[in-house]
């Protein structure tokens, strides 16, 4: 049996968790899911639709919003009770956090960000995991009777495979230390970062913008196309734009229909954040810049003279 930790936010299911269920189904048709906290059990039907044969919904009077160590406790109690061969979760900040706590509680290894998992024996697994935010892959052997692993976002496809609904509720055995760290409050989005991760169009600027002023052109373009403004780390560390707009390994990962990179060289850490874009257009004075190798369309020009021409044409086209 494979146990999958399903993450949700107040009853909204995390799509990467569904990808983890499909990854688990490929290892063993007997997949059970564990979901914890307020609004979790209502999701049982949705989880069963992806093939989980049993769903365990954990509750406790002290549990409402995300409480990492308590969620780990719930997973751990099911491991002890039902002895799964593996425990999976989505490779998201929360999925990785919960499984790290589980692994620490058991003093067991945790293979995070896997893109491939093969169980090769009673206590061995061959895995491939992402390093450098996916720019490099590691092939490794994990020795553990219960494999603990997270799956990198979008490495597995969530496949609907309806299983009959079997829901069990259980009280999570918590101690005081398990609820010390939990969400106390939720506040609105930080200025400027609204929807970058979900935007269909991202217009990004790098060092080539030469300062904060030229970003008003990117705001104009994003305005016409209904998109969001992004930037490189050079831009955030110079204080030209807020960090919420940084795209890349240590910023936000985006997957828009269109990514326009203006004056960005295309360092691996930046590419890690925008390589899932459907169409990438690069505007750069240097035809040899690495970003040009990732782009679908390139304009070899100076952003300061080219972008005003583009804005003019965009506005004209928009008025028609």
């Amino acid at each position: 049996m494979i146990l999958v930790y399903v993450d949700h936010d107040r009853g909204e299911i995390d799509p990467i968790s569904l990808q983890a269920i499909s990854a688990a189904t490929a290892l063993d048709p007997d997949v059970q899911a564990v979901i914890v906290g307020h609004g979790g059990k209502e999701l049982a039907g949705e989880i069963a639709a992806y093939g989980a044969t049993a769903i365990h919904a954990g509750h406790h009077v002290d549990l409402f919003d995300f409480t990492p160590r308590a969620h780990a406790r719930a997973v751990h109690s099911l491991i002890e009770k039902n002895s799964p061969r593996a425990v999976l979760a989505g490779g998201t900040p929360r999925g990785n956090e919960v499984l790290s706590h589980v692994a620490a509680l058991m003093d067991a290894p945790f293979a995070s960000e896997c893109v491939s998992i093969v169980l090769t024996g009673a206590d061995r697994a061959d895995i491939v995991r992402a390093r450098w935010a996916g720019n490099m892959l590691e092939e490794a052997v994990v020795v553990a009777p219960v494999l603990i692993a997270s799956v990198q976002a979008h490495s597995f496809t969530a496949v609907a495979a309806a299983a009959p609904l079997s829901l069990t509720e259980f009280e999570v055995p918590l101690s005081e230390g398990d609820v010390l760290v939990r969400v106390q409050d939720r506040v609105g989005s930080s200025a400027g970062g609204v929807g970058l991760a979900e935007a269909k169009v991202v217009v990004s600027g790098g060092r080539g913008m030469d300062g904060p002023d030229a970003f008003s052109m990117l705001e104009d373009i994003a305005g016409v196309l209904g998109g969001a403004v992004g930037c490189s780390r050079v831009v955030t560390s110079a204080g030209w734009r807020p960090h919420a707009e940084q795209v890349g390994q240590t910023g936000t990962k985006v997957a828009p229909d269109l990514y326009i990179a203006c004056g960005i060289s295309g360092a691996t850490q930046h590419i890690a954040g925008c390589k899932s874009s459907k169409t990438l257009i690069a505007i750069n004075t240097d035809a040899q810049a690495p970003i040009m190798g990732f782009a679908d369309y390139v304009v070899v020009d100076n952003v300061h003279t080219f972008l005003p021409l583009l804005i003019e044409k965009l506005k004209a086209a928009n008025q028609k």
Partner: peptide, 30 residues
């Protein structure tokens, strides 16, 4: 408990970018 066997670099799709040129003509093409 996790032993690395080897590293690989994922294949980067060679996209073969289309050049739109520069200036006015590129803005229209874009």
């Amino acid at each position: 408990r996790i032993t690395t066997k080897k590293f690989t670099i994922p294949d980067r799709e060679a996209k073969g970018a289309t050049s739109l040129g520069s200036g006015d003509e590129a803005a229209a093409a874009l």
